[in-house]
Design a protein around this nucleic acid. Sequence first.
DNA 1: TTGACATGCAACTATATGGTTGCATATAGG
DNA 2: CCTATATGCAACCATATAGTTGCATGTCAA
Lengths: 109, 109
Amino acid sequence: MESVFKALADESRRELLDRLFARGGQSLNALAADLPMSRQAVAKHLAILEAANLVSVHWQGREKLHYLNPVPIGDIVRRWVGKFEDARVESLTGLKAELEAKEKKNVRT
Amino acid sequence: MESVFKALADESRRELLDRLFARGGQSLNALAADLPMSRQAVAKHLAILEAANLVSVHWQGREKLHYLNPVPIGDIVRRWVGKFEDARVESLTGLKAELEAKEKKNVRT
DNA sequence: TTGACATGCAACTATATGGTTGCATATAGG
DNA sequence: CCTATATGCAACCATATAGTTGCATGTCAA
C-alpha cells in the first residue's frame, strides 16, 4: 500500500504506466527510447513499479517485457479512497454543523 | 494533480487525513497532541495538504480549524485511475494475446 | 495591559530520491 | 564461437523531503 502510493507520486512513473496502458509488452529499451532520461533511470523506475506490483514482467529471451497491472490501484480506490468519497456529503454537512455551533458560541463578541 | 499525488505519498499525511475524516474541525494543536512528531512537523504536513486542496481551513479566533476535502481525491480517481480500472479486462486479454503471439515466434527453439 | 496560548517563520540536519556514468552479465544470431 | 544487444549492478551526486529547535507574531481573557 505504502509502496503503491510512493510509486504513483512520481510523474515519470505515472508516464511509464500511461505508456504501458497504451501499449503493453514493451521492453526496457523500448520504453527508454523516447523518454528524456537514461535507460538506467527508467530501469530504476520500472523496478519501483514492479515492487509495488503495478507492473508485471515476462522474460522473453534477453528481453524483459512489461505490462500494466491495475489491481493495486483498484485496491487503493476501494480500501482507502472510497470511504472519503462516500463521506463527501456527510463531511460537508458535518462542516456546516460545526461552523454553526462555533458561530453560536461567538455571539457574545 | 501532482501536488495531490505527492501529498498522498506520505504516511503521516494520510494519517492526518484519516483523523480529519474521523473528526473534522480539529486545530493544529489537537492534531499534533497525539502524533509522534512535533507541532511544527504537523504544521508542515497540514500546509502541504492545504496546498493540495485536500484540507480546507477556517480561522476561529486564534485557532485554525482543519477539515477534510475529498474533492481532489475524487478528481484523481475519475481523471486518472478510472481509465486503468476500466481497462482491466481489456489489458489482461491483451496480455494473453501478446504472450501467445510471442510463444508462437519461439516454437523453433 | 499583560500573561498565556495557538500558530507562523526560519535555520539547520539527516536521509530519501531521482538522476548520472561505468562496468558486468547474459542471450540471440551469424 | 564471437560479437551485437539487452539488461543488471554499483558507485556517485544533487536536490527534495521530513524532521528538529528557536524565536516571532497574534489573539484571548483576566
